[in-house]
Design a protein around this nucleic acid. Structure first.
Lengths: 147, 147
DNA sequence: ATTATTTAGGACAAACAAGTCCTATTTGTA
DNA sequence: TACAAATAGGACTTGTTTGTCCTAAATAAT
């Protein structure tokens, strides 16, 4: 699994909120229900994203969460890093702590090349760019396939 | 983490055994010690690889494990699939079960492209091709960087 | 002021991955 | 035959991730 569950949920939340009207707070309970996610767990993910400055939150009635920046200013890499850390983009594929230029594991050179593709994907894609290809994609954020 | 610990250990074992003389069994305890891995856990990984036909094993004195095929005939993808299954090469990056051509998630098209690179890396690399660039790499299979 | 609504966050429970331990079973050698 | 060396595999422990529950704090509206 490339991303943790928490991270999958976080990315989906960011995409969902990008389709909500700007500068309006959406209750995270409503988001979790729309996305079919367990609220209590999802709420922690939202907290993490708020702490790292990707979401802003507001308590009380008519409060909720909202994107803290313009969706064109937020890359997937930022979301992933906020939740899963940087290991996906930095770590040896065999988990060898000493692996690097000086002491490469047998996969190092080729994996570095592949990892560049992975990094490029996450760095290049922004929340806005991912939503661009039509909002027919919005429904595809739900976990269960609908008929 | 791209690969599970079990899978990391399995790949390292395959590479290690590729550098051992052909048709000689090596005790898996010795392998685990050389690689700095916990034996009891490592032994299960070896079992899995033996069950899937990538290693052959022999009990008793002067027994052990050995590559079951020529290292040039074994791709990284086979090793990974034997231990972690195919999800790395097939699953939606957001974990959405309904994601596919008919109902793509916002990341689907771009991720499919990136995943092709990942698959190509694992499909193209064989145990033999990875060992080709010099046996100075053998030492780099150890977990602790040595001075 | 009181109340209802919402996030904040700690403490807990369940599920899974990682690692350990112990006892077969096989098999080469004395 | 007896013994030692090695894999086979079940049962268990530990640690991390995932998920749940409950209470506190903030805040808008009455």
């Amino acid at each position: 699994m490339i991303l943790s569950k928490a991270c999958e949920y976080g990315v989906r939340a960011m995409l969902y909120l990008a389709s909500a009207p700007r500068d309006t707070y959406v209750a995270s309970r409503a988001v979790s229900e729309d996305l079919g996610l367990p609220y209590s767990f999802f709420a922690k993910v939202v907290q993490t994203l708020a702490h790292s400055g990707l979401l802003s939150s507001q308590r009380g009635p008519s409060g909720g969460v909202a994107l803290a920046k313009d969706p064109s200013e937020v890359t997937l890499a930022e979301v992933v890093t906020a939740i899963d850390g940087e290991t996906l983009f930095t770590e040896c594929v065999l988990g060898l702590p000493g692996c690097g230029q000086e002491k490469p594991c047998p996969l190092h050179a080729q994996w570095t090349f592949t990892r560049t593709h992975i990094s490029a994907f996450f760095q290049t894609a922004t929340i806005a760019s991912l939503m661009e290809d039509g909002d027919y994609r919005l429904g595809s954020l739900f976990s269960a396939p609908e008929e």
